[in-house]
Design a protein around this nucleic acid. Structure first.
Length: 215
DNA sequence: TGGCACCTCGTCAGACTTTC
DNA sequence: GAAAGTCTGACGAGGTGCCA
């Protein structure tokens, strides 16, 4: 209003109609107990009270503009921080090296910290700010508040010893279930495939349980 | 969780005020 | 008296709190 000296023009500058602006002015008049702006032949002139308020209001608006509305843009080239990534064990060997290689060129001051936690705990870690990103299969995060993007499709394969009779060809599900198995369970976590078998009430003949995937 | 009442804030239309 | 601008009442949309 001080800048435009007109209810209509001030409203237009704020993308409001004149009545809306007039109503806002009426509310301010009631709250401050002063007309603030009075009609004259040369527009809406400020009262002494309005002029007195102009400087502190200007400072408040400037503070809001700088500290609230104007957020610093993220610049990978100069950013210096550690990103925490939730990823399964395989992610540490597949994803993290690629991320580091990319960061070395485009974000040289960025560091990556890998975190291996359960699918159920990933959502909470992200919500609490303990982690920045989760790479892997996290069906529990398919809900509002989380952004998801498919990066790739994955499939499972069977690993057998070099002289195993099934070294060639494919397996039927019955043949697969008749075999004995080595179960890789890092840090005691339940593998996605195990969860699938459990949901189907299928039990494997597990002869060995390992915490690391054999080289 | 859905329905309801209430409040806030917006627009529209028309009355009103001021100035020339 | 005309023109420009402001004010006001009616009404609608959306948000919120309460209650069954």
């Amino acid at each position: 209003m001080l800048q435009h000296q007109s209810v209509t023009r001030a409203g237009h500058a704020l993308d409001l109609s004149q009545p809306a602006m007039s109503a806002a002015l009426a509310k301010m008049r009631a709250q401050l107990g002063d007309p603030l702006f009075v009609r004259t032949g040369h527009g809406m002139r400020p009262t002494p009270r309005a002029l007195q308020l102009a400087e502190p209001v200007k400072r408040i608006l400037e503070m809001v503009r700088l500290d609230v509305l104007q957020q610093p843009a993220f610049d990978p080239a100069t950013a210096s921080r550690t990103f925490t990534v939730i990823t399964p064990d395989i992610g540490e060997t597949v994803f993290v090296p690629k991320i580091l290689a990319y960061a070395q060129t485009h974000a040289p001051r960025i560091a990556i910290r890998s975190m291996a936690i359960s699918s159920e705990g990933a959502g909470e870690a992200l919500e609490l700010g303990l982690a920045d990103l989760a790479i892997g299969y996290f069906p529990d995060l398919a809900k509002p508040g989380f952004y998801q993007q498919r990066l790739f499709k994955n499939s499972f394969v069977c690993m057998v010893r070099a002289d195993h009779p099934r070294i060639r060809g494919s397996l039927t599900s019955d043949e697969f279930l008749r075999e004995s198995h080595a179960l890789v369970r890092p840090a005691g976590r339940t593998h996605l495939f195990e969860q699938f078998l459990h949901s189907k009430n299928i039990k494997l003949d597990v002869r060995a349980e390992l915490s690391h995937c054999p080289a």
